[in-house]
Computed example of a mutant assay.
Amino acid sequence: MNYVNDVSPMHRAPENLALWLPKRGRKFEAGPAPYTRPGANELVVRTRAIGLNLVDGIPGFAYRLVVPWLTFPAVVGGDVAGEVVAVGPGVDRFTVGDRVLGHALGLERSQNRAAEGAFQHYVILMAHVVSPIPDSLSFQQAAVLPLQLSTAASGMFQHDGLGLDLPTADPADRGETVLVWGGSTGVGSNAIQLARNAGYRVVATASPRNFDYLHSLGAAAAIDRNSSEAVDELVAAIGEVPLAGSLAIGNGSLPKVMRVAARAPGTKRVSCAAPGLVTRMLALRAPRGVYVSSIWGGSLKDNEVGPAIYTDFLPTALATGAYRAEPEAEVVGHGLEAIPAGLGRLRDGVSAKKLVVTV
C-alpha cells in the first residue's frame, strides 16, 4: 500500500467514502465524503475495521435525547482500527504506516463533525485517544476496544466517577474490591481487566455460561445476574474486602448495584453506564449514603484519564499480553454497506461478543 503523509498541502488528498446519516430517523446512505487533513494533535487513519455500538444505530427520536447537538448530515461510529496515513503538528508518538486503534469522537458535543466519525475510509482521530497495536493483534479484534474501553475507564478513573487509582504495568494489591455488574458485556470485559491492572480484586456478574470467561479476565468471583438472590450473593462474595467502587452495566442493573453498595463495606460510589437521564431518575431512589454518577465514554478526552489509558498504559499492556482485546470479535460483513445490517443484529442482542465490520 502507498501511505500518504499529507501534512503538506502539496499532496493530493485520497478519495474518501463514508456511511452518511442524512437526518434523524433516516436510513444510512453510502457516498463520497471530504478528506480532512489532520490539525494539531490529530491523525488521519485509514480504517480497516469498525466496531459496532448501540449508540450508532439508535432511532431518530433517541438521537434527540442522547446527542441532541448532533448536526446532520452526520457520520457516526466510535471504534476504529487501521493504519496511520497522516499526522498533524504536535504528534510525535506515531508515524505513517503505524497500526493503531482509536476512539473516534465525532459524536462529542465539542467535536460534532463528520470527519471524526468512524463510518468512513479516512477518519480524523485525536492522538491522545489512539494506541498502537502489536502485529499479533488483528484489526478486527483491535476494533472491539475503543468505545467500550473509554466507557469503562471514564466510569472507573475519573474524579466524577469512582476515582480509582489508574492501571499500571506492575500494580500493587490495593486490598479493595470493584463490583462489575455486567461483566461479560464489552464495557464489563474492559472494566474487569482495568480493575485488575490497577490492583483491585473484582467481583462480577454474568450468565453462568460466561463464568469461565469472567475468571479468565481476572474476576475473583462470578455471580449469576439472573439469580433472585444475586444481591445477597454479591454481598457475600465481597465479604470483608471492602468496595472501592461499583459499576452498573446493562438494563436493570443500577437498582441492584445500589442495594449491594448500601450493604457491603467500603465506598458507596456507583457509576452507571445507562443514559444520563435514566441514571438520574433511578438515582433518586438510591439508599442513604449511596452516590451515583453517570458515565459518558468520550469524556476522558478532556482530562488526564484519556492519555493515561491510551498513551501510558495500553500500548505496553497489549504488547506484553497484560491486557486482552475483549470480547471476541465477530465479523458480520465487509464494507461500509454492511454496517446497517450489523447494527440491526446488534439490537437483537449479543453476549460476550463484539460485532465488527471490516473495511
Rank of each mutant, 00 (worst) to 15 (best):
M1A: 10
V7K: 04
S8R: 02
E15R: 13
L19H: 00
K27L: 15
G31Q: 10
A33Q: 14
Y35K: 05
E42Q: 09
L52M: 04
N53Q: 09
G57Y: 01
I58D: 05
Y63D: 11
V66L: 11
L70A: 05
V80S: 04
D92P: 09
R93F: 01
F94M: 05
R99H: 11
G102L: 02
A104K: 03
A104E: 02
L105D: 01
Q120R: 10
I124P: 00
I124L: 07
P134N: 14
D135W: 02
Q140V: 15
Q141V: 09
F157R: 05
Q158H: 12
Q158C: 06
A169Y: 13
E176N: 06
T177H: 11
T177A: 02
G182T: 09
V187D: 00
Y200H: 11
L217P: 08
G218R: 03
A220N: 15
A221Y: 05
A221L: 03
D224T: 10
N226L: 08
S228Q: 13
G252V: 15
K256Y: 13
A261P: 04
A262E: 13
A264S: 11
G266R: 13
P275I: 06
P275R: 04
V278C: 00
L282Q: 07
R285T: 06
I295M: 07
P307T: 15
I309W: 06
P340L: 01
G344Q: 12
G344T: 15
L346D: 04
R347F: 13
R347M: 12
S351Q: 15
V357W: 05
